[in-house]
Amino acid sequence: MSVVHLLLSKEGNSQEECEDSLEYREDGSLFIAAIADGASQGYESKLFSGLLCEHFVERFKESQEYDEKELRGKFDHFLKEVIEAFNAAIMEKTRGRELKWYEENAIGNGSFSTFMGLVFDVGTKKGYLLSVGDCFLFQVKDAEMKTGEEDPEQVLRIYSENHQEQSNTPYLLATNRLYNMKLPEYLFLSPITVENGEALILATDAFSYFLIDHTENIGIIKSIAKCDKSGLKRVVETGRRQKRLKNDDVAIIIKRFERLPMKEPNTLKAAEKSSFIMARQENSPL
């Protein structure tokens, strides 16, 4: 299995309340994926983040070449389409009933979401990334190799809209077009090239910052890149329990590019190993 995904609501909330979304599609040599994190203080954030992901995997499948100007134009068109779909859904949901004052104001303020979309040709190993806000893509080199004494900078590359400026006030996509004025400034685009044996991890903010906190111990990230869904879930739950991962909704997609027909990784062990390392670090005098 070369794609693993996990969508998990914050502990204490039902899965229906999860405002993160993800979609991916494998179509011949095309791999297209999207994750989004609806802002908890927006109205119908789950609807907005879901529409962003659904529309992206549908609309960007024809655009496999990295052409920044063209992609920016296409993204504007895509966002307009998503906003129209959002407004139509809200109209449908509220049809025939009187809105309370705060619902009217909330609908006027609209919804907000981070977003990251990946379009990839598995044949050429080339693709591109589009992102707004603090979703991240981690490119793990030699993900199949055993952990050694490696320089994290040589093994891991992190893509995001300026991940050095981590903030709890990210610029997000909005359903109210007036708030998207600065979007050209904040829309991050990048071409991506991978080699066999590498893995790509797309994640919304909580899990991303958890990974960033572990970049000095690349073995953990490599283990995570090899997890199956249940292993990944265990990593998230362990991280939350140990208070190393913020209790927030989580959306993760892992795409692995196997070097050779590889032995199915013992994913449970990988997850256990991650948990073990985290526990060991927690107990470390350092």
Partner: peptide
């Protein structure tokens, strides 16, 4: 802290 506030929400003061 009831969740992430957006840059846009902060700048326009929401209400």
């Amino acid at each position: 802290n009831i969740g992430t506030r957006t840059d846009q929400q902060i700048r326009r003061g929401i209400d």
